[in-house]
């Protein structure tokens, strides 16, 4: 899919007009004006599964994510910024380890801010379809986003860092208004985060 980003190789792709100025945010499901989301969540890690509620709230210049158990226990509370590292406001001792926080922060940050904001953006359009693809880079590696022509939002994101660091995020939405479910998986390990949006009304 993302090989299309190499424009010179595949003729079925073309470069669309200039990327909109607000492109980096306009394709995201989690913008400042999207309101809060509550997800039923499970984290599968080898033979272990952690379940609970994931709460996402956009703030003016950041996004806040809290993970709590069904019974109300707060597991972690993190704040994410587009260009800065996440801030951990709270994390229970049991998982408050640097590598854990780093990976968790990176995964969730990519879920919120899909496209890196810099001059290395490349966007291509798949001829005969409504899909666009965006490649962006930052210090953590390269991100490839598939943009749905139907919803105008990211439907799949692949992030590649080092040789063994590869992450996939899939967004599912039936009506194109909100993300109904999200799946975050790593290629090289049995780690998967599954989120299903809860209707609180």
């Amino acid at each position: 899919m993302f090989s299309g980003c190499s424009r010179s190789v595949y003729k079925k792709y073309e470069t669309p007009p200039l990327l909109p100025a607000d492109a980096v945010d306009s394709y995201s499901w989690f913008r400042q004006d999207t309101g809060r989301y509550l997800f039923q969540s499970s984290i599968d890690i080898y033979q272990n599964t952690f379940t609970g509620l994931l709460f996402v709230k956009p703030l003016e210049k950041s996004r806040r994510i809290l993970f709590i158990t069904e019974t109300g226990l707060k597991i972690f509370d993190m704040e994410f910024f587009r260009t800065a590292d996440p801030v951990v406001h709270y994390c229970i001792d049991a998982i408050n380890r640097k590598p854990v926080i780093k990976t968790l922060g990176k995964d969730l940050s990519l879920m919120l801010f899909n496209i890196a904001e810099n001059d290395e953006l490349i966007m291509v359009h798949e001829k005969g379809s409504e899909k666009n693809f965006i490649r962006s880079k930052d210090k953590n590696g390269t991100r490839f986003c598939s943009i749905s022509g139907k919803t105008g939002k990211v439907e799949e994101l692949i992030s590649r860092g080092g040789l063994s660091d590869k992450l996939n995020i899939k967004f599912f939405s039936e009506r194109g208004l909100q993300p109904d479910s999200i799946e975050i998986s790593h290629y090289n390990m049995k780690l998967k985060i599954h989120l299903v949006r809860l209707n609180e009304n």
């Binding site: 272990n48 599964t49 952690f50 158990t69 069904e70 019974t71 229970i92 049991a94 998982i95 380890r97």
Partner: peptide, 19 residues
């Protein structure tokens, strides 16, 4: 660290109940 994560599941349930 993996053991820490493995332990988290039990810890989480315990703490959940506690809270």
């Amino acid at each position: 660290n993996f053991l820490v994560l493995k332990h988290m599941n039990k810890m989480k349930t315990y703490l959940s109940w506690f809270l």
